[in-house]
Design a protein around this nucleic acid. Structure first.
Lengths: 210, 210, 210, 210
DNA sequence: TCCTAAGCGAGACGGTACGTCTTGTCTTCCA
DNA sequence: TGGAAGACAAGACGTACCGTCTCGCTTAGGA
């Protein structure tokens, strides 16, 4: 009868993918808080009750569907060393992978990081970025020294700044390329980080506060 | 015309205050998204229908009730000049008024800036801070020079960072005083800002990127 | 705006009446177990949620709506005395009010007393009739004597018989008038009752069992 | 290992028996309308889909499982003659087999004949009893005479009365033995039946109505 | 001091979404 | 082949919250 009766596992996966894609599409179209489980199920051509067989609620779908995206971001955040930075051999400044990923899903992020978006997603992204910054960058760099401020403070500072910058960027059309934004972000951050972690990037003099 | 010439009806004001206070109390207790208009009205001993005579919805109450808080924050963000900073005569570094205000309403902000908080409020605060930074600080400082990055980028960067820091601070008990946080915030920011706006704070050498 | 905005009490009553009437109509049309709360609300042009403001569920509506019908039946079951029966002055035999009421609502009862009807209603009617028989007829008649069988047994016997007869009658078109059925019912019952309560109806010889 | 490797037919029968027994047990425990197909399958350790391979629905299982019970009842309802009754040689009065059967399955019948029971079962039992009374008792007894009321009326009357009496009995603990109930039932019925079929049971005078 | 318009309590209602439950169908795979 | 396992559609359920409306009471502020 049904021409699409593949293996049960595949069927399951098809259903989930349909739901995920419907979610993405609808978020971009109407904003996150403007859509209901019903909307998602309708768009995915899935019965609403079936939705609940797979996901607890809208947030659950969003977050579980985001796992892959998180991973995509995380992969780029490789651990770096003081030497890399001091030698200028790091590519941090030119690593625009975060922003490229954001631009590839611009509608999605623009919707989620707006006043009609998702607080849970925003906070979760904030925390994820903070954690990533700490583990992959700040703590390795702070190895053996006494930071001027706690590394988790720096993580919170940078992750907040990144969210702020992303939101700024997304509401300003395509005026800047991912690379440009990445560089601006880097330059705005690096001196503060260098001061906090007590090293001198790019030959600049160490700032001496208080 | 005199649209603000409403009769100083005490009853009206009493009702609104009761609703505002109920909102604040409930947010601190149960989080923003955990309360309904019904809850607020019950707590305020106000009929639910009466709520709608005064406010459009929960967000409306939150935002209109926040006007005074915004003002409280805004007052401190006085316009400053390059000279003030260069002379070290500015009190920016020691201006902890933002963070004192936050600490005074810690439960409130902790609830709103959490995964069960309010995206509308968070974004609104972000935008408000960005705007405030731009108008009161960055644009005056950028007067006559060509910033390395747009001032609204810097505003977005700093406001995001501030939200990130506030959230970090609020989830870490009372380990740091408002003054300490303000200083850390200042130090993490100032070198980037100085680089962007091309001046040399506190006698530090100007950073020279590429 | 709304041309039908009468007093709240009236509005309430209008809503309930609409629901009751929708229920009756639908029961007659499609049987009790074939209709949902949704169907009733739709037919009554009432929002489904509003249904639940008034009634717990379908059964609740049925039973509360039946109160008046019960009363209508109950009114006719006046207390009678041995003398009335012995003198033949009672109108019991010719009291067809029960059956007239049933015929007036034939579709309704036919639906409820069928295999797609309502067990709750059927049992409730059975118990109600049993109770009514006991209180209004059997116990007064048993005053001062020792019945051969408990009066509540007789009540159960007669009420069951009446339901059986009603069902028989309703599935046989209009072959018999309410009066005819009432008389048959009376004659089939009276000798057993007379035996149990030890009196001689209509000049018949007392039956002597065992 | 393969203790389940009997012939396929046996497996089939085992499955069905498991389902029947689960149904009976659950009805007695939680009432008929309180259990779902899922509950039955769980209790029987049978997959729910398998249930539908054997039975259309819950009612189908009940009814098909009841066939044997029906037969058990039917066997006792032997055809009787006027002579048997007039001679007192019938054992009708002392035939308590119906009630003994009921008592043996008291929980089951109590559940099904209650407000949370099964209308389909109740009506079906009513009809079955009416039919049985008609065929095995009333019509043979009415042979050659003109009954005062139709025999199917009498069947409906008696079957209803029997259900009423069973329900009365089941809700009154063990105060009466099956024999006592059977005798009461007999005595309450016999005079009416005798009147209707125009014979004089047990030497009692024929009742002469109006 | 009284009167009158407002603020407000009370609560019915339509509407939308929620998450759960049950039913019946179907498909794949195993013993 | 009978059954296990489980995905799915369909749809009812009862609840929660929202925003609107109407009706009267009360009460404060102006006449």
């Amino acid at each position: 009868m049904n021409e699409l009766q593949e293996k049960p596992d595949r069927r399951r996966e098809r259903t989930r993918r349909a739901l995920r894609e419907a979610l993405i599409a609808l978020i971009a179209e109407r904003g996150y808080d403007g859509i209901s489980v019903s909307d998602i199920a309708d768009r995915a051509d899935i019965n609403r009750a079936t939705f609940y067989l797979h996901y607890k609620d809208k947030d659950d779908l969003l977050f579980r569907g985001m796992a892959e995206i998180y991973d995509a971001i995380g992969q780029h955040h490789q651990t770096i060393t003081r030497e890399q930075i001091l030698s200028g051999a790091d590519d941090l400044m030119n690593d625009a992978s975060d922003f490229e990923h954001v631009r590839a899903h611009a509608d999605f992020y623009r919707a989620l990081f707006s006043e009609r978006g998702s607080i849970a997603f925003t906070i979760s992204m904030l925390d994820y970025l903070a954690e990533t910054f700490c583990c992959h960058m700040l703590e390795p760099l702070a190895e053996g020294i006494e930071p001027a401020v706690p590394t988790d403070f720096i993580g919170a500072f940078l992750s907040g700044a990144e969210i702020g910058v992303i939101r700024w960027w997304l509401t300003r059309g395509d005026a800047y390329s991912p690379q440009q934004v990445a560089q601006m972000m880097y330059m705005m951050s690096i001196f503060g980080v260098a001061w906090a972690l007590k090293f001198n990037p790019h030959g600049a003099a160490t700032a001496s506060a208080d």
